[in-house]
Amino acid sequence: MSNPGKPDVVMTRWWWVRHAPVRSDGGNIYGQSDIACDTSDRYVFEAVAKVLPRQAVWVASSLTRTHQTAEAIWDTGFPKPVTMAKEAAFAEQHLGKWQGMNRAAFLASRPPGSHWFADIAEPAPGGGESFMDLYNRVVGAIDRINVEHAGKDVIAVGHGGTIKAALGLALGGQPEKGLAFDIDNCSVTRLDHIKSPTVNVWRLPMVNQQPWIADEAHKAMHRPAGPEVTTSKLA
């Protein structure tokens, strides 16, 4: 999106959506395993669809759960794009031998105060990645897409680690800062890239927004008095 008052300024708006919750993991770490997600809560996807731009470039990771999430958004009546790019660089971190381990037991074994599975430079054993490996590939893809689709809205359906990496980039290239954020399933995070001949910066308009909560609060304020009405919630 170019700024009419400043024609040399181009703003590319990223709308990151984390995939829907995984129910079939058995409480285990799944990382880059291609596991399905639960898209049954239509109320959640209707709320997410309300905040996303209708004219946008769509991109998703190479993992099935991001494509299922995109389909659930389109199934609400949201205009389906002609194409959606599959970006392998936006896949979740490969957690090697940690994948399949009990998540709670594993995290309890890590140092107190850890924001992630391991230190950002520690690769997962068994051929896995470090968070820095994830960060570098995510940043490379973002930089490329910022050039290819400069000035547009980009809806990117990704993963918790992917979005944390994008936040680290937006916070001045500090990947460890991105790890401090919670990124909930189906949440929306918007990051604006602003580019001019003299400026190359990011703005963070919203992080980990859950539109279904605000939507329900608005409905409650305008709901006629009477028997309580219940709606499904994201677990």
Rank of each mutant, 00 (worst) to 15 (best):
M1D: 11
G5S: 13
G5Y: 12
D8A: 15
M11K: 14
T12E: 04
R13Y: 05
W14L: 00
R18Q: 02
H19C: 06
S24W: 08
G26S: 04
G27N: 08
I29S: 03
G31S: 04
D34R: 04
I35V: 13
S40V: 00
D41L: 08
V44F: 00
E46T: 05
V48F: 03
A49E: 00
A49D: 01
V51T: 11
L52P: 02
R54N: 05
S61C: 05
S62V: 03
R65T: 08
R65Q: 04
T69Y: 12
T69F: 09
G77Q: 05
F78W: 12
P79S: 01
K80C: 10
V82T: 14
T83N: 13
E87H: 10
E87I: 14
A89F: 07
A89R: 13
A89T: 09
A91E: 12
A91K: 09
E92G: 04
Q93L: 08
Q93C: 11
H94F: 09
G96Y: 06
W98Q: 01
G100M: 07
N102I: 01
N102H: 12
L107H: 06
L107P: 00
R110N: 03
S114T: 07
F117D: 00
A118W: 00
I120G: 00
E122T: 15
P125C: 00
G128S: 02
F131S: 03
M132N: 11
D133H: 10
L134I: 08
N136I: 03
R137K: 10
V139D: 00
G140M: 05
G151S: 04
K152R: 15
I155K: 12
G158N: 10
G168D: 04
L171G: 01
E176F: 09
G178M: 03
A180G: 09
A180V: 07
F181V: 06
D182F: 12
D182S: 15
I183C: 11
N185G: 09
N185T: 10
N185I: 04
C186P: 11
V188D: 09
T189L: 10
D192I: 07
I194L: 14
I194P: 06
K195Y: 12
S196I: 11
T198C: 10
V199C: 11
V199T: 15
N200V: 06
V201K: 11
L204H: 02
M206W: 08
M206G: 07
M206C: 14
N208I: 09
Q210R: 15
I213W: 06
H218D: 13
H222Q: 14
R223E: 15
P224A: 08
P227Q: 15
P227T: 14
V229D: 05
T231L: 15
K233W: 14
K233N: 11
L234P: 04
